[in-house]
Design a protein around this nucleic acid. Structure first.
Length: 108
DNA sequence: TGTGGCGCGTAAT
DNA sequence: ATTACGCGCCACA
């Protein structure tokens, strides 16, 4: 079925996400750099429009400040809590400050 | 610490 | 085709 209604970017994005091992997270900037993109915003937006939420681990992407940033386009406390739960389920550790453990973050 | 501006892509008009 | 917006990041004051 064609390339789907998704854009080439999403495919690339999915490929990058696939490279992220479980229990580990990557920042938007790192992911963008991997996609050869100078704008992390494009990445975030692509994830936000990603209708394949459970199919695409967009929750493995966090802010460069080690903050969860947002989830599904919502920076609400509930969304962040859910994201944190998902990451914790994967084995990612969190700091008492609510930030992600830098050892689990891949800043390549 | 807080604010503004920046470049890329998508989606909508 | 053009405009507006978006889960961000960086630089500067």
């Amino acid at each position: 079925m064609k390339t789907g209604q998704l854009t080439p970017f999403q495919l690339k994005l999915h490929a990058a996400l696939r490279q992220i091992p479980a229990g580990r997270v990557m920042t938007y900037a790192a992911l963008a750099a991997r996609l050869r993109c100078r704008s992390p915003r494009a990445v975030g937006q692509a994830l936000r429009a990603n209708p394949y939420a459970p199919r695409i681990p967009c929750h493995r992407i966090i802010c460069s400040d080690l903050t969860l940033g947002g989830y599904q386009g919502a920076d609400s406390r509930a969304a962040l809590a859910r994201k944190r739960a998902l990451l914790a389920q994967e084995g990612v550790r969190f700091l008492p400050d609510g930030r992600v453990d830098p050892t689990c973050v891949i800043r390549s």
